[in-house]
Amino acid sequence: MHDVLASGLQFDSDFFWQSLLHPTRPFLRGLWRTVYISVIAQAAAVVLGLGIAQMRRSRLGVWRGIAGFYIWIIRGTPLLVQLIIVYNGLAAVGVYSFSDVSIGRLTFPGVIQAAVITLAVNESAYMAEIIRAGIESVHKGQTEAALAGGMTNRQAMRWIILPQALRFIVPPLGNNFNSMMKTTSILSVIGVDELFLNAQAVSSTTFRTFEVFIAAALYYLLLTTVWSVVQTWIEGRLNADVGLVRPPSLLQRLFGGGRATPPTDTLAVAAPEAR
């Protein structure tokens, strides 16, 4: 190792291309874990967040208080600390210790359960605020029209408000999911064998730290890029739902993309502000 450091630039391009184009099985497994942990945690966070957002909007102060308290705690403490409390802390005080669960041929290691739950809970606090803001961005006249049309509050929310709120929710949700995929790298501290921990393992046996982590970075970039494409498609669909055609192009989205059609403007056209 000493001569490697002494002899200037030592970029092992063979090793780099090998890592990038012919990743090892464990590396691919780590990548897959990163993907499914992010997807499950984000999906759960949206569901949880929707519930908390509704509590925040409740007429009963108790519900609002509980939801506010939850958001305050979760957003006010680091994810890293939450992770260790949930996985190591709870076990240490004998409250709950995560163990592997098997469903058919699938096995969910305890550490991954802890990771998914913590990420989902952490993200749900952010999603709650995003969803609440989205719901409150929908013009008040929409709720009135739905109620006047004989819908209950629940029906109005389901058919009229949420579909419109989605246009406000998806862009920040997409941002958060982008972060989520990258944040999974800190799961390595509790020993989740994901992309980052794999890269670290390879790096510590080969000492090709630079090559390995550049390859890992490119894989993270691949994930977030794929998500950008998906998000652009979703936003295009939502625009089409209100009769707008002209979603931002992929190039716009990836490289300095302003939104072609900000949602606030378009809704204002459909439902002008009173007075």
Binding site: Q142, V242, A271, A274
Partner: peptide, 12 residues
């Protein structure tokens, strides 16, 4: 039936 000043059609 209720008809609003600002129409309040469902934009989606």
């Amino acid at each position: 039936g209720f008809v609003f000043q600002h129409f309040n059609l469902y934009p989606h």
